Measured scan of single mutants.
Amino acid sequence: TRVETATETAWISLVTALHLVLGLSAVLGLLLLRKQFPAHYRRLRHALW
């Protein structure tokens, strides 16, 4: 049972790390898009919101 708990903890930390990386890359991508293609960014924002 101890090994299972350790594996679960590892999976949870892995998933958390993946979510963090995905969130950060999404934010960075949006910032880059905003900087380089303001028109595209505006259109995207209108489409999303």
Rank of each mutant, 00 (worst) to 15 (best):
P38M: 15
E8C: 01
R42G: 07
A39V: 10
V27S: 09
G23W: 06
A10M: 14
A39R: 04
L30H: 05
L22E: 00
L33Y: 14
V15Y: 06
V15F: 03
P38W: 15
I12T: 13
W49L: 10
L32S: 12
V27K: 01
A26Y: 00
T16I: 13
A10V: 09
I12A: 06
T7Y: 14
V21I: 08
A10Y: 10
R42I: 11
R43I: 06
R43F: 06
E4F: 03
K35E: 09
T9Q: 01
T7D: 08
L31A: 08
P38R: 15
L33E: 00
G23N: 04
E4L: 05
G29L: 07
A47G: 04
Q36G: 11
H19F: 15
V21C: 06
T9L: 06
H46P: 06
L32A: 14
V21N: 04
S13M: 10
L14S: 05
E4H: 08
K35N: 14
L28H: 01
K35T: 14
A17Q: 01
H19E: 02
L44S: 02
R45F: 12
H19D: 00
R43V: 05
A6C: 05
L48A: 08
A17G: 08
V21M: 09
K35V: 12
T7F: 10
R43Y: 06
L32C: 14
K35F: 14
R2S: 09
T1D: 03
R2H: 09
A26P: 07
G23K: 04
R34C: 15
A39Q: 09
G23M: 14
A47T: 04
L44M: 05
T5Y: 00
V27W: 11
T9N: 10
Y41D: 02
E8W: 09
L24M: 09
V3D: 02
H19I: 14
G23V: 13
V15T: 13
T5N: 02
A6E: 07
I12P: 10
V21L: 07
I12N: 04
L44Y: 02
L31T: 11
F37R: 06
R42A: 10
L32P: 02
T1C: 04
R2F: 14
L14Q: 00
H19N: 08
T5K: 02
G29E: 01
R2P: 10
L14W: 13
L32Y: 11
P38L: 15
G29F: 11
L32H: 13
T7R: 09
A26M: 15
T9F: 12
V27E: 00
R43D: 03
L31G: 06
H46L: 11
Y41F: 10
L28T: 13
S25A: 06
L28M: 10
A10F: 10
T1K: 07
L20E: 00
H19C: 15
L31H: 10
A39E: 14
H46Y: 06
E4R: 02
Y41V: 14
A10T: 08
A10I: 14
S25P: 00
P38E: 14
G29D: 00
S25V: 11
L33C: 13
V21Y: 00
V15W: 08
I12R: 11
H46W: 06
V3H: 00
F37Q: 10
S13L: 06
G23Q: 00
F37L: 15
V15S: 06
G29N: 00
E8R: 08
A39G: 07
A39I: 10
L31F: 14
A6V: 04
V21T: 06
V3P: 00
S25E: 00
L18D: 01
H46D: 15
L28E: 00
S25K: 01
L24A: 14
V3S: 01
R45Q: 07
L14M: 12
R34A: 12
F37V: 15
R34W: 15
W11F: 12
T7S: 11
F37I: 15
R43M: 15
L18E: 03
G23R: 02
R2I: 12
V27D: 01
K35L: 10
L28W: 14
L32I: 13
R34F: 15
K35D: 08
G29M: 05
K35G: 05
S25C: 04
L31W: 14
H46Q: 13
